[in-house]
Design a protein around this nucleic acid. Sequence first.
DNA 1: TGCGAACGTTGCGTTTGCTCAAATAAAAAC
DNA 2: GTTTTTATTTGAGCAAACGCAACGTTCGCA
Lengths: 228, 228
Amino acid sequence: MLDVALISHLTNFSDFSRRELSEFIAQSRAIRMPQNKAFFSEGEEAHSFFLLLDGHIRVVRTTPSGEQVIIRYISNNDIFGIAKAVGQVKYPATAVAAVDCVALAWPTRMWEDTIQRYPSFVKSVNKAVGDRLLDIQDRVIELATEQVEQRVALALIKLMTQTGKEVDDGILIDMPLSRQDISEMTGTTLHTVSRLLSAWEQEGFVKSSRKKVVITNSQKLNALCRKI
Amino acid sequence: MLDVALISHLTNFSDFSRRELSEFIAQSRAIRMPQNKAFFSEGEEAHSFFLLLDGHIRVVRTTPSGEQVIIRYISNNDIFGIAKAVGQVKYPATAVAAVDCVALAWPTRMWEDTIQRYPSFVKSVNKAVGDRLLDIQDRVIELATEQVEQRVALALIKLMTQTGKEVDDGILIDMPLSRQDISEMTGTTLHTVSRLLSAWEQEGFVKSSRKKVVITNSQKLNALCRKI
DNA sequence: TGCGAACGTTGCGTTTGCTCAAATAAAAAC
DNA sequence: GTTTTTATTTGAGCAAACGCAACGTTCGCA
């Protein structure tokens, strides 16, 4: 059984009374998702919406020709799978656990009821949608106007902000992240990403190894982005 | 004064009673926006939300270095300026009249009230947000995985579907559309767009002149996109 | 502990699409 | 009707980034 205290501090639930919260949580079920398994897949009927309690999720779409594009990463305390909230019947993308994850899931058929009973939650969901819309607009602008080097630098900075963890020699992006992953976020190839990371390691502001990136000097990385 | 009949057939208002509709419309004011003037600008406080009755709108964002990116075009009977519905305080982009436009505007402060009184309208707004989220995801995928030629072809097809008008020799994109506009939609340069349009005109499936594009053979244009 | 698979690196040739530049054409302004 | 502005076309050279290919490294697992 889940402790309400675990969740009560989240901004999504700031307007909930203790009783509403435990009531709402009682309607969910906890899900444990092992690494590299999908919570749901593109095109599937949107049966549930989720709250990520622990882990990181990769939101991915696949092109007709089989290439993958990473739309975004979802981290702790984020809502996801909220297709129904924006009038969609199917999930528009696949949500893969980047590490072992824990989440709460509510059946989508509860959504109408949720609108009635927990308007503040709905508002926070709408806010999340708006933030994602802004975020993905930024991605379009980056892809349309900036060079690969800037795009990769920006992607690392975003991940650093989102999932960064202080370690001895800088800030670690705290999840497995391959060259290929980075290339799928930035619309380039793993080769180019590898070359960039090597060059940056030479210049001494990034350290990377297998599925691991540490930013040792974020100012320098930032400086790269503004070189427009 | 606006005739309710003008609007009652729109899907946004399908659940409205005649009385609700005229009441809702009474709270709006009609706006006439001359070509190339902005309804609102990026960063401005979101004072109003709108329904476009006639015309075409270009939604644009400007990069720090002054380049413009066209996020989307808005056409007849579309809602826009709905920042508040997704928890945003400021408009995230600039909305410019691509031609002389007519729209209805409601003050944003009415939004809370609207949620209470016209939930079906709110639902249609959310649906619009979802559709745009999907649309812009598609843009990201295109920019990340496809070549310029495909992207330009896809952009023309989308515009054709959205604003196409049958004419003698094919389907006209029924608004002023320069090479530069197309390049700002697809993340390329006006030069490359010009070269592509010239080549396509040679091959005989597009006719273009100053700020005007006619697709004379949409199958052939479609075929270009699938060349992946 | 050794094997295979997954991940990462790097060199080389090629190509796409950009930049720069100049000419032309069409519309708008006077 | 002439001038000015704005839009378009086209050529030539060049650079960013890709594709290919080969090799090196790390990890998991038997």
